[in-house]
Computed example of a mutant assay.
Amino acid sequence: MPYQVNFKGEKVVPVEEGQTILQASLAAGIPHYHACGGKGQCTTCRVLVLQGQEQLTPPTSYERVIKNVKKFPDNVRLACQSNIKGEGVEVQRLIRDETDRYIFINGSDDSTTRVMGERRKMALFFIDIRNFTPFIEASLPFDVIHIMRRIFAIFRNAITQYDGVIIETAGDGLYAVFGLNSKIKQAAESAVLAGLKILADLRIFNNTYMRPYFNHTFEVGIGVHVGKVIVGNVGIGLSNNLTVMGYPVNIAARLQAATRELNNSFVISDLAYRLLRNQPYSLGCGHINLKGVSTAYEVQLIGKPYETELPTIAPDAT
């Protein structure tokens, strides 16, 4: 008996007995790419199975070989190698025009999961250098860049030591994530350990280098939060192209900004703090209102009060 397959955003297609998904879509007039002629020797006909994966025939030997090479997730199938054995199948073509074809076929990223994007729980880490503007104003350009490189090396070494990935740098701060290769509890632990290492290493840098040679010291503000985010590769040729976005990212950024008003160098959401197996000493907890966030967030202060007085910033009325 014939079944039906729903091509998301396109049409519901009848599938006759013995037809592959590719054959059925072509018969229904869908311009389904199939560069190798439907012989399982390329990947242009691949589809993302949204529902009914159990209603498809098992992967063929051609699919298994390609999956091993391309590291396809289980819900990506070759339409030319997949037959339907029941109702309730919904798929989405991944290559729908020439731009898609370039991204998926000619792009340098060999991870289909990263190109397609995925949701996963991660620890989000924001850090910003305090009192850097006075140093800029009083120093030569060479010294400013040189010190920036030294400080960012401290950041990078700590983050990479604990398996974090720097996503973005902006001015005198950066944004990193933990959890690309670990579960959320380990990700939270790693983010905290990286932050504490940065605070310790920066203290040494201040005492052995900044004070003797520049009569200046630096402090930082760190914010950490955890949550489910979207991870993907935007493929625009910048850095490693990895993007991590979502509401929890905004919360982490707000926590970093709140270090100033809370007068503590390391602010972590209570949600992230409760995931830690070895919880660092907290100077206190409380609820803070974050800009753009409707409910107050409970946080833990696991850094130290700032040694230098920070200028007061008038609250944003917007």
Rank of each mutant, 00 (worst) to 15 (best):
M1T: 02
N6P: 05
V12E: 08
Q19L: 00
S25K: 11
A27D: 00
A28S: 08
A28G: 03
I30P: 00
Y33H: 04
Y33M: 08
C36T: 00
G37K: 00
G38K: 00
C42A: 01
L50P: 05
G52K: 14
G52A: 09
Q55R: 13
Y62Q: 06
E63K: 14
E63F: 13
N68C: 04
N75R: 15
E90W: 08
V91G: 07
Q92V: 05
R93E: 07
R96W: 04
R96K: 15
D97V: 02
Y102W: 05
R114V: 08
R114K: 14
V115H: 08
A123D: 05
L124E: 06
L124D: 05
I127D: 05
I129L: 15
T133S: 15
A138C: 06
P141Q: 01
V144R: 15
M148V: 09
A153F: 13
F155L: 10
I166F: 06
E168D: 13
E168A: 11
G171N: 10
L174D: 04
A176V: 03
G179M: 10
N181I: 10
K185D: 12
Q186L: 12
A191G: 15
I198Q: 06
A200I: 07
D201L: 07
Y213F: 15
N215D: 04
T217G: 01
F218C: 09
G223Q: 01
H225S: 02
I230V: 15
N233D: 12
V234I: 15
M245E: 07
A252M: 11
T259D: 04
F266I: 11
I268Y: 06
R277S: 03
N278D: 15
Q279N: 04
P280L: 05
P280S: 04
G286C: 12
I302Y: 06
E307Y: 13
T312A: 14
P315V: 11
D316W: 07
